[in-house]
Amino acid sequence: MDHTLKKTSKLTKRNRIIAYTFLLPNLLGFFVFIFFPVIASFFMSFTSWNGFGKIEFVGLENFIDLAQDKGFRISFVNTLLFTLISVPITLFLAIVVAVLLNKGVKFIKIFRTAVFLPYVTAPVAVAVVWQLIFNPSMGPINGFLSSVGIDNPPGWLSSPDWSLISVSIVFIWHNIGYYMIIYLAGLQNVPDSLYEAADIDGAGPIVKFFKITIPMLSPVIFFTSIIALIQSFKVFDFVYVLTEGGPGRSTNVLVYSIVNTAFERYEYGYASAMALILFLVILVISYIQFQGQKKWVNY
């Protein structure tokens, strides 16, 4: 007995070593390109450094400054607003589209491709087109709005009241396809028998959607909500190409501020402190989500 046990453990040992050897290249990459920079940035957030010369340890000074920095506050609020607008709408629309394109539609593949296409298009290229669409004087949106009798159409990207919403619209449009694919995969696991039973009980499509589809998809919804949240907190590319944080500071989101602070103002320590705050915020929100999931996710 004892003998056999020893033998297995030897075998497992060897297997594990082989496994780790296969993992090694990936782990190495992870350590060099992700783990190390993250740790370095953590330590850097307690220093003051302009990219040259001595790195000066300043303790918590960066964080104290951040607490009083109005610019940081603006970008923080902008990021929260952006997330509040974009995440629920993206996920909701993605579910609706996924259910509609799940089965029984003619040319289903063409429609699915059409919805997914924005996601694989480069943000920079997309931004150029959206800039034309949003153009307040010559763009098609305002052209349409004024033709139906709206005298004062919004200024979209050029108006501080609308710019964050405009960027959200582009962001939502870009991301729906990605989440749709995940939901479509989730829908494959919902057994038809549930819908058949509901049919017999006389349930309509809306009841079925809320009573069967949503609960059955809840693990997927949970997963996507975490991913979407992180993605929207990290938004940078669309802001950079659409508005450069403007007009004024109306679309200056956290990551945009971080990039600016580090690479325009050359305050690497301060930028790292901002990044650390961003990390902590995402961590806390994800933690809350994980705690909350027990109440609504069905496995």
């Binding site: 501080p160 403007g246 007009p247 103002r265």
Partner: peptide, 16 residues
């Protein structure tokens, strides 16, 4: 870059 451009812009578009 971070003061004159955005603040001036707000004036020029009539927000300030």
């Amino acid at each position: 870059k971070t003061i004159f451009v955005p603040e001036g812009e707000l004036a020029l578009i009539g927000q300030q």
